[in-house]
Nucleic acid binder design. Structure first.
Lengths: 156, 156
DNA sequence: CATCATGTAATAGTGAAAGTTACATGAGTA
DNA sequence: TACTCATGTAACTTTCACTATTACATGATG
């Protein structure tokens, strides 16, 4: 289990919602993810606030999409999660008078921020309906789709 | 302060060693980094095992480079640290029968691994003597050098 | 009004890195 | 030889962010 599974979790949840006609409860998704319903509500709160989903209380309530999957990108979701750190590495301190440390940190930042920009750019290109298509294609189909995906990505 | 500062720390240490003629003790570096000498030895162990540095005991002992800075890349150091995670995000589980989860994870992995490959490729291009040059140029010079660096990077 | 479902604060658990202590080993020095 | 310096490493403890759980309030449905 990795350190931060929120992005993966949210995508899982959103696609399940999309495949259901009826609202999906936090409890249902929590079971599917092997976690607690509060965790589900917590990571969905940002998406609700930004208008990607709606939550309905009472009987027959649960989560519903308020936008098409094609209108939501991974970047939207990432931002809705509060833009958590993408890269594990960092610096020990921000305030150092040591020139060596400053130069080292400046150089590392270059590389790390470049990687971060790349990830965010990719996130911005990927809409959820493409993910949904992968799911519908099934395992074998998914592999093919990903290969096409990777070709497309390397050309852009 | 980020969660993993080892890469930054090691670079700091190696450049300091390079700038000194005499061996540098773990205690000295620990003071410079505001940490403990055991932490220094711990993160340096991998580099010693791979032959990038040598450690000498007793009076006048400490850490010494056993290769030129130009012969060491950031990638070498990263590997010597044990190849720790570069990207913060991951999946909740590796074993799921849920097709949605499988498709989501496969897609995320694509993007994340691509970012990881990019970072490692950059690491492989950056030799420590280039970092050392940045230090010697000082703050203003360093800025210019980084700009050139970034131009070079975007062309490759 | 009983039940279902979300909303959220408060608290505890978890895992990896960082920090610390303790002690063993080896190298130089008086 | 004895002493000091410095590394090597095991065995903790601490810290920090994410995850998990508990508890209770609010609102919607039947």
């Amino acid at each position: 289990m990795s350190r931060d599974s929120r992005l993966s979790d949210v995508l899982h949840i959103l696609l399940h919602i999309a495949f259901e006609r009826a609202p999906v409860t936090s409890e249902t998704m929590a079971s599917s993810l092997n976690t607690n319903s509060v965790v589900v509500r917590r990571i969905m709160a940002g998406l609700r606030d930004r208008g990607y989903v709606r939550s309905e209380k009472g009987h027959g309530g649960g989560w519903v999409l308020s936008r098409e999957l094609s209108e939501i990108t991974l970047l939207d979701i990432y931002l809705a999660l509060g833009s958590p750190a993408l890269v594990s590495f960092g610096r020990r301190s921000d305030t150092s008078e040591c020139l060596v440390e400053q130069a080292v940190n400046a150089n590392l930042d270059q590389t790390l921020q470049e990687a971060q920009r790349l990830m965010l750019a990719r996130f911005g290109e990927i809409t959820l309906d493409r993910l949904a298509a992968d799911v519908e294609l099934g395992i074998e189909g998914r592999r093919k789709s990903l290969n096409l995906e990777s070709m497309h990505a390397s050309k852009s």
